[in-house]
């Protein structure tokens, strides 16, 4: 039996599928509790439903992107392990990098099924788990205390104060870093100020931004509030389609 057959065997699916199923149950429990608590606290049912609908449509396209990550890793790590990693705790940009570093440490020249051994795989799997578990560890020990301290600080100032603005600003910083990286990639990606790097991400940013402007116009000026729930997914879809069209004509 070759290594990929072992990595795609029924016990592997059972182990990884079992963990994913447990996490799905945890998500369902949190969801039902939050929904019930929202109703009990007098939050409008429509608002709660909009939070669910907008989050579901929002997550659809990035999830397909994550599925591509599973497919990309399945050639070297089999399907069940990348399926687990990217369904639970993992992140698309993280998994390949850590798997590659672990592969080098177990003596492989690259992350590939041709060089994979059972021990090598188990080591890579362990490292992938250990490197990214700290957020969960910190949550277990400090989430309550940390939020308690922040909450205590707010009580004195009354209301949400600067907190809300700070969160929006942090998010603006996050988006700025990514857009800055696309601009930098285009201007200097192929050599300092060569303007020969990839411009595709910039085109996609502009198109999805313009489509979002259209959605906001519909929601605010035409009073079509329901389109808001689909605005991100719709903008992304058209932005991604623009990449396909541009590539066809290049």
């Amino acid at each position: 039996m070759n290594i990929l057959s072992l990595l795609n065997s029924a016990p592997m699916y059972a182990i990884c599928g079992g963990i994913i199923a447990f996490v799905a149950v945890v998500c369902a429990v949190f969801m039902v509790r939050a929904y019930r608590a929202g109703l009990a606290m007098g939050i409008d049912r429509v608002k709660l439903k909009r939070a669910i609908t907008s989050s579901a449509t929002f997550s659809l396209l990035p999830s397909v992107g994550i599925l591509l990550g599973v497919i990309a890793l399945s050639g070297s790590l089999g399907t069940p392990w990348p399926w687990l990693r990217l369904s639970v705790i993992g992140a698309l940009h993280y998994e390949t990098q850590v798997a590659q570093a672990a592969a080098e440490q177990v003596g492989m020249s690259s992350l590939s099924a041709a060089e994979m051994t059972p021990s090598g795989f188990a080591t890579i799997a362990l490292l992938m788990s250990v490197c990214i578990m700290w957020g969960m560890v910190l949550s277990i020990f400090f989430n309550k205390r940390y939020l308690g301290k922040l909450g205590g600080g707010r009580k004195g100032s009354g209301g949400t104060g600067f907190g809300d603005t700070a969160m929006t600003a942090m998010f603006i910083g996050l988006v700025s870093a990514y857009i800055g990286s696309y601009i930098g990639g285009f201007v200097s990606g192929g050599g300092l100020f060569s303007f020969s790097g990839s411009f595709m991400p910039l085109i996609v940013v502009v198109v999805s931004g313009l489509v979002m402007a259209g959605f906001i116009y519909l929601a605010e000026k035409k009073k079509l509030a329901w389109v808001e729930s689909f605005s991100i997914a719709g903008s992304m879809l058209i932005g991604m389609a623009a990449a396909v069209v541009v590539k066809l004509f290049m």
Binding site: C27, A34, K47, V70, L86, L150, R154
Partner: peptide, 28 residues
């Protein structure tokens, strides 16, 4: 941010998002 409503909406949002990813990946 920091209000009970945000706590509820954020939990609903992350739970829904996680379930969508789990379903899409399982189907995929």
């Amino acid at each position: 941010t920091g209000t009970p409503e945000n706590e509820i909406v954020s939990t609903l949002s992350i739970a829904t998002s996680s379930l969508v990813t789990i379903i899409v990946l399982a189907l995929g």
